[in-house]
């Protein structure tokens, strides 16, 4: 009889890291579909580019490190990173943007630190921030939601058109498609008040609804993940509440110069950040209290950077900055262990 001897416990919940990641991928589908619907086939093409290059880079890194490729690719973490980057870059960005992005995300932001579980920053956001700083033109060229583009109604340009845009990447062609995002418009008002902008700007009048719908799609996916216990409510809720609260105060004080809370939450990438980026377990705080602090930090930073910063959206920088603070947050939010009077804090043994 060959009985095995091992340490308890002898049963485990049938959840796995890869299972968690698969759920995340599933939950991203509505958002990706919404993006495709409003911004054209470009999103799907970017997804394909990022996936292919991301997995290739991951496999390369694993091979160099002498790790079993199939097992580590099977954890789907590279897939999630690729999807996150794909939905963050403009749908019409040229081919190399996605490839360079994945190169940075997988090799520099992740594998150099020791692979899954060891990266201090969210890889997709590192890549996004680097691309944004290095290639501001390509990275800010969002086309207008297609609900606007034709007066005859809904029409997405043919897939061939998107393909040629991305692979051939002529800038004139691009110009024809691009416009500022709603948040951009609301910030660079040229002396007008926000209300005036809402009344005058075509993008805002007709495009806002598309952005709202997109946010709703991300929100749905996020709720599904909380329901599935992939992550707890702490981070997203604290981001949303903090951002809403701070922007509400600002809006209440000076409605003509500040964006209202609802649009803060729904016009940009707030929902994507709250549910899919900030909840990345590896680079966020670990305890529930820590996650609340972490989320509050992100919410506050999003508001500050959006209002006074220079970049169209603030999500990437906010998340990265808070990633930086995560170890410290963890240190100061340690739970009080059973049977101890106080949480174990301070330099004892550190």
């Amino acid at each position: 009889m060959s009985l095995i001897r091992m340490s308890s416990p002898h049963v485990t919940r049938s959840n796995t890291s890869s299972g968690v990641m698969q759920l995340v991928i599933l939950a991203m589908i509505p958002g990706i579909l919404a993006l495709t619907l409003f911004f054209g086939w470009g999103t799907l093409i970017q997804v394909a580019i990022c996936l292919a290059s991301g997995l290739a880079f991951e496999a390369l890194a694993l091979k160099m490190r002498g790790l079993p490729i199939s097992r580590y690719l099977g954890d789907y973490s590279a897939t999630v990173t690729a999807l996150l980057l794909a939905v963050s870059i403009p749908p019409s960005a040229p081919l190399w943007i996605g490839i360079v992005g994945m190169f940075v995300a997988i090799l520099f932001a992740k594998q150099v630190y020791g692979g899954i579980g060891n990266n201090p920053f969210n890889p997709a956001m590192v890549a996004y921030a680097l691309l944004l700083v290095s290639f501001p033109v390509q990275m800010t060229s969002w086309n207008l939601p297609y609900v606007l583009s034709g007066s005859e109604g809904w029409s997405i340009p043919a897939i061939s058109e998107s393909l040629s845009l991305i692979f051939a990447g002529s800038s004139q062609m691009m110009d024809a498609y691009t416009g500022a995002t709603p948040l951009d418009i609301l910030r660079n008002r040229d002396g007008f008040t926000t209300e005036e902008m809402w009344r005058s700007n075509q993008t805002l009048i007709e495009g806002a609804a598309a952005y709202h719908a997109l946010s709703a799609a991300w929100f749905m996916g996020g709720i599904y993940l909380i329901y599935k216990k992939v992550f707890t409510w702490h981070t997203p809720v604290s981001i949303l509440v903090t951002l809403g609260f701070v922007s509400a105060i600002a809006y209440g004080v000076d409605p003509s110069n500040f964006v209202d809370p609802f649009n803060h939450l729904t016009l940009g990438a707030t929902m994507l950040a709250a549910f899919f980026i900030a909840t990345d377990p590896v680079s966020s705080a670990t305890s529930n209290r820590g996650r609340i602090v972490f989320g509050m930090g992100i919410g506050l930073l999003i508001f500050i950077i959006r209002t006074w910063g220079n970049y169209p959206d603030a999500v990437a920088f906010s998340v990265l900055l808070m990633n930086l603070a995560a170890p410290m947050i963890d240190h100061y939010t340690q739970p009080r262990s059973y049977g101890h009077k106080r949480a174990r804090l301070g330099p004892k043994g550190e």
Partner: peptide
Amino acid sequence: WPEPPQTNNLIATDRQPRFEEN
């Protein structure tokens, strides 16, 4: 108690093929 097998390792030292696929 014996030490559990180490399954993942950090960068500098992990080039040895220490992994067997399950």
